[in-house]
Measured scan of single mutants.
Amino acid sequence: LVRYRTISKIPQITLNFVDLKGDPFLASPTSDREIIAPKIKERTHNVTEKVTQVLSLGADVLPEYKLQAPRIHRWTILHYSPFKAVWDWLILLLVIYTAVFTPYSAAFLLKETEEGPPATECGYACQPLAVVDLIVDIMFIVDILINFRTTYVNANEEVVSHPGRIAVHYFKGWFLIDMVAAIPFDLLIFGSGSEELIGLLKTARLLRLVRVARKLDRYSEYGAAVLFLLMCTFALIAHWLACIWYAIGNMEQPHMDSRIGWLHNLGDQIGKPYNSSGLGGPSIKDKYVTALYFTFSSLTSVGFGNVSPNTNSEKIFSICVMLIGSLMYASIFGNVSAIIQRLYSGTARYHTQMLRVREFIRFHQIPNPLRQRLEEYFQHAWSYTNGIDMNAVLKGFPECLQADICLHLNRSLLQHCKPFRGATKGCLRALAMKFKTTHAPPGDTLVHAGDLLTALYFISRGSIEILRGDVVVAILGKNDIFGEPLNLYARPGKSNGDVRALTYCDLHKIHR
Rank of each mutant, 00 (worst) to 15 (best):
T300Y: 05
Q127I: 01
I141A: 09
I138H: 01
M390T: 04
V289E: 01
A167Y: 01
E375G: 03
C232M: 11
L299M: 08
V159E: 04
E114G: 14
S383M: 10
E314P: 01
T120K: 12
K425Q: 11
A247Q: 01
T437V: 11
I198E: 04
H239T: 01
F304D: 01
I135F: 07
N386A: 07
I141E: 03
C406W: 03
A242P: 01
N368D: 08
T437H: 11
V226L: 12
I166R: 01
K285Q: 13
A440K: 03
G303A: 13
Y329R: 13
Y288I: 01
V393D: 01
T150H: 01
S277V: 05
N156T: 13
T437A: 11
E221Y: 05
S326Q: 07
V168I: 08
A291F: 01
L327P: 11
S192V: 07
L409G: 02
C243P: 01
P184E: 01
I138S: 03
L414Y: 10
F140S: 01
I237V: 11
M139E: 01
S298G: 14
F140W: 03
R371Y: 01
T385L: 03
S220A: 11
G346W: 03
Q341D: 09
M179Y: 03
A181V: 01
A225H: 04
C122G: 01
F83V: 08
N391W: 05
C427L: 08
R208H: 11
W87G: 03
W382L: 04
G396F: 03
Y80V: 09
Q253S: 11
W245F: 01
F108I: 01
Y293Q: 01
G271Q: 03
I361R: 02
S298Q: 14
A69P: 05
F185T: 09
M179I: 11
H380R: 12
F83S: 08
L230N: 14
V307W: 01
K215Y: 03
D257S: 11
N335E: 07
R205F: 01
V86M: 12
A242W: 01
N156M: 13
L446K: 01
D444G: 10
H364S: 03
R421Y: 06
T438C: 12
M139Y: 03
P369G: 08
K395W: 03
L197K: 07
K425I: 06
A125E: 01
Q402H: 03
K285N: 03
N335I: 03
T311P: 01
F435W: 05
I405H: 02
L241F: 05
C243A: 01
F378G: 04
N391V: 10
I96A: 07
A338I: 15
F333G: 03
M256N: 15
C122M: 01
D133H: 01
R371F: 01
M322V: 04
R218N: 04
D268W: 10
L236S: 01
R421G: 09
G278P: 01
Y293H: 13
E121D: 15
M328V: 09
K418F: 05
A432C: 12
R71S: 10
S283T: 05
H416K: 08
L413F: 04
A69K: 14
N275W: 01
W245N: 01
S277P: 01
Q353P: 01
P82V: 15
R342A: 06
W240K: 01
R349E: 04
I340R: 03
N265F: 04
S313R: 04
V86E: 01
G443M: 04
Y384E: 15
M256W: 03
